[in-house]
């Protein structure tokens, strides 16, 4: 009784194992261009608007991105950059700046020059912040970059 069924099962088991043609590659945040901003240890100023600039690429299709900025007065780290910036002493936040935004990318792109304007009010605390950029592709792969920036005054 069994041999035909078994052979059939084996056939299913071993023919169904060809690798899928799905996307296995993460998108890339490229900040090597001359106008890419902000780079690690950059300073941005209270009462001004700065422009985030980066090149996003993906082997298949880009998804969307987000930018989050939070204070690093306690010296935690998310930095994906090997270089350490000069730190201020640890301090207690009074009115820390916070930026949490989601951004869309037009569909079907493999390459996108991203920009976003971020305005820093005059009333926020100065000091070291983390500038987090997160990028997905259409398949749901995510990559992120953690950049240390300083909010200062001119």
């Amino acid at each position: 009784m069994k041999p035909p069924i078994l052979l059939f099962l084996m056939a299913i088991a071993f023919t169904s194992c060809q690798p899928g043609d799905h996307d296995d590659e993460l998108p890339v945040i490229d900040m090597s261009a001359a106008d890419a901003f902000p780079l690690n240890c950059a300073t941005v100023y209270r009462g001004e608007t700065f422009e985030f600039r980066a090149l996003f690429t993906d082997n298949s299709e880009l998804g969307s991105f987000s930018i989050e900025m939070h204070h690093n007065f306690d010296h935690h780290t998310h930095s994906t950059d090997a270089t350490q910036c000069e730190m201020d002493p640890v301090k207690t936040p009074v009115s820390p700046f916070r930026w949490i935004e989601n951004y869309t990318i037009p569909s079907a792109l493999q390459r996108y020059e991203a920009t976003a304007s971020i305005t820093i009010p005059t009333t926020v605390d100065t000091g070291m912040y983390h500038f987090m950029v997160r990028l997905t592709d259409a398949a749901g792969w995510q990559t992120f970059r953690g950049i240390s920036v300083r909010i200062g005054d001119r």
Binding site: G63, I100, N102, T136, A138, W141
Partner: peptide, 8 residues
């Protein structure tokens, strides 16, 4: 896991 973001 989707391509979208919510609160970053």
């Amino acid at each position: 896991p989707t391509a979208q973001y919510y609160e970053a």
